[in-house]
Design a protein around this nucleic acid. Structure first.
Lengths: 219, 219
DNA sequence: ACACAAAGTTGCGCGTACGCATCTATGCGT
DNA sequence: ACGCATAGATGCGTACGCGCAACTTTGTGT
């Protein structure tokens, strides 16, 4: 099945730190690949990029490319989305302990995407214009689920199973927020820049309805 | 991207009713395909079924097969999952108006999956044993999102945007429940039949944490 | 330092996904 | 009943995803 599903990049976010030569090379290869993918997509348009081109630009075999990314879209999006979603767990843990869960989660999620707008407008335009890339970006957002589940479970008062459900709900809501953000892009191509609102604002709005569930007393 | 994503079968559930010859043929072909896919998968095992075999068994060209299903897994799962998920909207509307939203939604969702266990144990075993099929089945569950969003929006006190978020959250939670159910199958292959609980029970449990959000007063 | 185990890379081959151009069946207006 | 507009079916060609089986590089114990 193609949509072949979920993103599973790296087991640990801080792979950079584990300074084995092996790990560093791996990371470098991944970055080279996604960077090449993004650059080529920008130059030629997303549909005129062959997998072989990306591999060649990164100096590896096409087969190796597939060991890192299971689709062209993933490779391209990875350069922009990176492991933002994976850092959410840490962000939640960094919030003050006495803060209500709902607020902690919302802020943690929003935090990850508050710098998305500025750096590369052109790249974003690219992603928003190609349906495949949009889908890939949304999958990226959904990747918050697992780290988030762990972080929520750590906070007192909720068993793991409840935490998993809440994390899934949050991920889904965040996806909806991101969807709306993307939608606002496509329609207003040249006229309105950000008709629907900024990504952080839309994320907040989407997460709001879940607050009662997050802050509900543990049973 | 592979997992290529969401299921978009038919725009309307009651296509059966719109008795144009065209529509009926279309539906028939779809069913012939998914039935053939399921049967062949049962006989030979999921990995020994080629797309060409399915197409031949259904009496259409391989290319036509791809006009209906974008992956082998989808075709196989469709026979079991069918449009269960799509009926959720109607199920919600069928609940008494004065019932709290949380209860209405939970019951509507559970209702759709309460007859899954008995009819074809063998088929379910098939689905549970093949990773690709499991993923496809879970995608099926996620298809509740859109019909559910519409149904929730219709109930008083919630704007469309909130409804969309809640529907997404419910779909995600249902997916988690289904995931747990599947997990319980794989581990206990011959010994325990349903170690983790029945699908309806697991769905209820997974949806429970969202109740506060669903029943929260409209803002 | 050395050799062995573990992890990563590469080429190959099969089956799949899907755009495009063409042909056929259906539905609808007259 | 007739013919045109259109949806659907089919074939073809290209690119992709990924399992498998070598081969190469990095990590580790002695």
């Amino acid at each position: 099945m193609r949509p072949r599903n979920l993103l599973r990049y790296a087991p640990h976010v801080d792979e950079t730190e584990k300074s084995g030569l092996r790990e560093r090379k791996k990371l470098a290869t991944r970055e080279a690949l996604s960077a090449a993918a993004l650059r080529l997509a920008m130059e030629r348009g997303p549909d005129n990029v062959r997998v072989d081109d990306i591999a060649e630009a990164a100096g590896v075999s096409p087969r190796t490319y597939n060991n890192y990314f299971s689709s062209r879209e993933q490779a391209i999006v990875a350069a922009v989305a990176a492991e933002r979603a994976l850092r959410v767990g840490a962000a939640v843990r960094a919030r003050p302990d006495d803060e209500p869960l709902a607020r902690a989660v919302v802020e943690a999620v929003v935090e990850q995407y508050s710098t998305v707008d500025e750096p590369g407008r052109a790249e974003l335009a690219l992603i928003t214009s190609a349906p495949g890339l949009r889908a890939a970006f949304l999958d990226t957002v959904s990747a918050v689920e697992q780290p988030l589940a762990a972080a929520i479970a750590e906070r007192a008062g909720r068993d793991e199973r409840t935490a998993a459900v809440l994390a899934a709900a949050v991920a889904a809501a965040a996806r909806v927020g991101a969807e709306r953000w993307l939608r606002s892009w496509v329609t207003g191509n040249a006229l309105l820049v950000v008709p629907g609102g900024s990504l952080p604002d839309l994320l907040r709005e989407a997460l709001l309805p879940l607050a009662p569930a997050l802050d509900a007393p543990a049973r």
